[in-house]
Design a protein around this nucleic acid. Structure first.
Length: 588
RNA sequence: CGGGAUGUAGCGCAACUUGGUAGCGCACCUGUUUUGGGUACAGGGGGUUGCAGGUUCAAAUCCUGUCAUCCCGACCA
């Protein structure tokens, strides 16, 4: 039976909802696919549910092809497994917690690594049982501080999460690749434009991780890519230390008074005025020593100082990724008060002619430099005395560092780390994430099996996520125009939308007849059999976004119907008898 | 959590400055009309104006508090 608009539970809106900002949100609400229930929580109406179900079906097919088996865990779980891995604490306010009548703690699961691991531990004890890949399609709950953009960042959302269990690293690599390949097939079937970027693996203690991003202005992730294929999340870009430069011509370092120069700009201006040189000085000639406070997961606070070229800022997210699992904060007034040797605005690696910053130096504060600080490069930097700087301080000759910290902002035009050309920056929406977890969770939960020598070994895991409900929004975001949604055939609620445009009974009869013939050919059909004017039906057909539309109307007198292709906007008349044959031919 | 804005009918909005007991468009119901681009006309149903307190003869409107929502930022395995 076709989906009849005369009886479908649907109300389309003429105007955009006031609380929607992004196109996918506006259109999905206007077209009657979803309704907001609470911030970041949506109800699914018939058409929306059909799209979501079709995406889930594609995911199921590709998971099966990747050798993964479907299971299903509760969304409501006791806290114990999450305590074992420390995440009951780590997640903080971001999880929905609740108590049962006995005051026992429960949570609405934000992710399921723990219970998957425990179930495997429960059932399997031998290397012969591995590898194993299992997945579920389940509702996740995260109490986001700020849900936004409709389905793109919700507090309740559907995710496909898969987990692999292997005996060794080679097995993990194979499992990872199988999931990664499945993701490529899934996103291709959805007709999505996406990029695979190197992601930060440190946060979950893993070794390798990639994200699937859909390029979009409204995306929350920033990534970089080069024209010849390098792509990474900005958090995960790692630059090689610059090669050593010849410092034999660099004059000896000299300390000078530099009154009222606490900022890079004032210092550059002062240098050009009081110590001019050919070509002048710029911010890139100065070494800015940024004091950061690291806060460990246990809450311990310690300082580090990072020297970066004065023309670059520290990127907070990159710093967090670099110093993971610590949190990174700006040093506070109190931090400075606790380290009297630090002269704010005039901090530098040396004091007098001796190393000052560094774990083993006077300050005992670890000191790192940006990879752009090459051995042999000379800098203007602080002298650790009020209103004094030092010129021509040369790395490797006059000062040293405890290591490299690659936490400066990445800029468009920076060379790619693999030498593949200049980088461009773009924003993207994360639609999938594949992750080699390694043994972190297995260790914490004591997930071990006997190997062929009868020895207990810890299993190595991978975790793989696809945001199913987010995909509904991403497809809508990538595929729409000012009139409405444009679904790809693979997930459209129906492939064909038939409009009865006219008042004569014969028009409706023809449309009905056409609908049942189309269904016999295996097509899913929406039939607009409402008693409404043609204009209303045309506008709704475009808003709802089925890939093909057939209009039964005035052309019937000549035995013709009109066919529209939503995506291309192409429209043409065909003989009624050959309409479905034409459609079948065009769909190939 | 910081900054900004907004809460009036299912949806989009007006009335608030200057207090007088709520209105417009869409949607919905009835009738007539119209039938290839959101027809036209007439009639109709639907609101304790976010909540609580205060001022006043009288509060959507003024005052205090509170809650909620949206946007920017912080945060986001």
């Amino acid at each position: 039976m076709p989906i009849r608009l005369s009886t479908l539970f649907l109300r389309t809106l003429r105007e955009d909802p006031a609380d929607a900002e992004v196109d996918s949100h506006k259109l999905l609400v206007r077209a009657g696919y979803i309704r907001r229930s609470a911030p970041g929580i949506f109800s699914w109406l018939p058409l929306g549910l059909m799209v979501k179900n079709r995406i889930e079906q594609i995911v199921r097919e590709e998971m099966a092809a990747a050798g993964s088996q479907e299971v299903h865990f509760p969304a409501l779980l006791p806290k114990e497994p999450y305590e074992a891995t420390g995440r009951w604490e780590e997640y903080g306010d971001n999880i929905f917690r609740l108590k049962d009548r006995k005051e026992a703690d429960y949570l609405l699961a934000p992710t399921h690594e723990e219970v998957f691991s425990l179930l495997v531990k429960d059932l399997y004890t031998s290397y012969k049982d591995l590898p194993l890949s299992i997945y579920q399609i389940q509702i996740k709950y995260r109490d986001e501080a700020r849900p936004r953009a409709g389905l793109l960042r919700g507090r309740e959302f559907v995710m496909k999460d898969a987990y692999s269990f292997d005996i060794d690293d080679a097995g993990l690599e194979r499992s990872y690749q199988a999931q990664r390949d499945a993701y490529e097939r899934i996103f291709k079937r959805l007709g999505l434009d996406y990029v695979i970027v190197k992601a930060d693996a440190g946060a979950m203690g893993g070794s390798k991780s990639e994200e699937f991003l859909c390029p979009a202005e409204i995306g929350e992730d920033t990534f970089v890519r080069s024209s010849s294929g390098f792509a990474a999340n900005v958090e995960a870009v790692r630059f090689e230390p610059s090669p050593e430069v010849d410092a034999s011509d660099v004059p000896a370092a000299e300390v000078h008074d530099s009154p009222k120069t606490p900022t890079i700009q004032t210092l550059v201006d002062f240098s050009n005025k009081e110590h001019p040189r050919d070509g002048g000085w710029s911010a890139a000639d100065t070494l800015k020593n940024v004091v950061l406070a690291l806060v460990s997961p246990e809450g311990k606070r310690s300082l580090v100082i990072v020297g970066v070229p004065g023309d670059r800022e520290v990127d907070q997210k990159r710093a967090e990724a670099w110093f993971s699992p610590n949190d990174v904060e700006q040093a506070s007034e109190e931090d400075f008060a606790n380290h009297k040797g630090l002269v704010k605005g005039y901090i530098g690696p040396t004091k007098g002619s001796k190393q000052f910053l560094g774990e083993k130096a006077e300050s005992k504060i670890p000191y790192f430099v940006d990879p752009r600080v090459a051995k042999g490069s000379a800098w203007i930097t602080g002298a650790n005395e009020n209103e004094k700087h030092v010129w021509n301080l040369t790395f490797g000759r006059d000062f040293d560092a405890d290591g490299v910290a690659d936490i400066a902002e990445v800029r468009a035009g920076d060379p790619a780390p693999d030498g593949s050309g200049p980088l461009e920056l773009a924003r993207g929406i994360e639609i999938g994430h594949v992750f080699q977890l390694g043994r972190k969770y297995a260790e914490a939960l004591d997930l071990k099996v006997l190997d062929e020598n009868g020895k207990l070994v810890t299993v190595t895991m991978g975790s793989y996520g696809v945001g199913v409900t987010r995909l509904v929004a991403v497809v809508a975001e990538q595929s729409h125009d000012d009139k409405g949604l444009i679904w790809p055939e693979s997930i459209a609620p129906a492939q064909l939308h038939i409009i009865a445009a006219g008042k004569e009974e014969s028009v409706f009869e023809t449309a009905e007849q056409l609908a049942s013939e189309a269904e016999e050919l295996g097509l899913t059909v929406i039939l607009d059999d409402r008693k409404a004017s043609p204009g209303v039906k045309f506008a709704d057909a475009e808003l709802l976004g089925m890939p093909w539309v057939i209009v039964c109307g005035r052309g019937l007198e000549q035995g013709e119907v009109e066919m529209w292709q939503r995506a291309t906007g192409e429209r043409f008349a065909v003989k009624l008898e050959s309409a479905l044959a034409e459609l079948t031919a065009r769909r190939k």
